[in-house]
Design a binder for these strands. Structure first.
Lengths: 106, 106
DNA sequence: CTGATAGTTTCTTAAGTATCGAAGTGTGAG
DNA sequence: CTCACACTTCGATACTTAAGAAACTATCAG
C-alpha cells in the first residue's frame, strides 16, 4: 500500500544514513554486532551503548533510532528498562544488492 | 579545511542518494557506464540521457546533478553544448569501503 | 509507594530541501 | 549576427529536518 518501489525503499535507507550522527549510531551498532558475534553472543545492543561518545540529548537519540527503524535498517525491542537494537538482515541484503552496480562500474 | 571526517563524507554521499529522483539519476548513470564499458567506450553520458523517463524540469535536474557532484559522486565537464557526467571512481571506492561492515555483520 | 533509570512524546525553532517558472549564459549552426 | 539548444541561476513556495527543553511513561530496586 505504501510504496513498494525498491528504489524508493533504497532511497529511504540512504536518507536514514544521510545524517552524520545517525550514520555514526548505525555504524556503532554494526561494530557492536561484529564484536558480539565474535564473542558468540547475539548481535544487538542497547541504546546508551550506541552513543559511543556522541554528544546528543536523549530525545534526539530516540528520534534518530526511530528513523533508522522506520527506514527498516534496524529493529528494536524493549528488554526491561532498555531498548535493544538489532541490525535488520533484510535491509543489509537490500543494501548489498545495490553494490553489484558499484562493483561492476569502474 | 572544510571537514575531512570520513564519516561526514560518507553521510554526504548518502544524502545525495537519499532523494529518489537523484538516486535514479545516479543509477541511470551507473547503468550507462556499464553499457558503455561493455561497448569499449568511455563510461560517461550527458544529461538528457540520464533522465531516462523521469519527469523533472530542467532546473531540477541541473540542481540534482550539482548535488551529486558536490557530494563527490560524479564529475562533470562541458562538452560542446552538453554536460558530460562521469561516475567518480574514488567515491565508489569509499562507498565500497563502507560495505565490509555490512558483509561482516549478519 | 518512592525514587531512579531509560526511553518517549510534544512542541518549538532554525535551517535545509525539492520543485518549478522566468530569466540568463555559453555554444554551435546557418 | 541571429537563432535554437542545453544547461544554469535566481527567486518563490511548500515542505521536511535536527535538535533540545519540558513533561510524560515504563520498569525495576528497596
Amino acid at each position: 500500500m505504501a510504496k513498494p518501489d525498491p528504489v524508493d525503499r533504497l532511497a529511504r535507507m540512504f536518507k536514514a544514513l544521510s545524517n552524520p550522527n545517525r550514520l555514526r549510531l548505525f555504524m556503532n551498532l554494526l561494530e557492536e554486532s561484529r564484536l558480539d558475534l565474535a564473542k558468540g553472543r547475539t548481535h544487538d545492543c542497547f541504546l546508551a551503548k550506541l552513543l559511543g561518545g556522541l554528544e546528543l540529548g536523549a530525545p534526539t537519540v530516540s528520534h534518530h533510532v526511530k528513523e533508522l527503524a522506520d527506514a527498516g535498517l534496524i529493529q528494536t525491542q524493549r528488554e526491561g528498562k532498555q531498548l535493544v537494537c538489532t541490525v535488520d538482515p533484510e535491509a543489509l541484503a537490500e543494501l548489498r544488492a545495490f553494490l553489484p552496480a558499484l562493483v561492476a562500474a569502474r
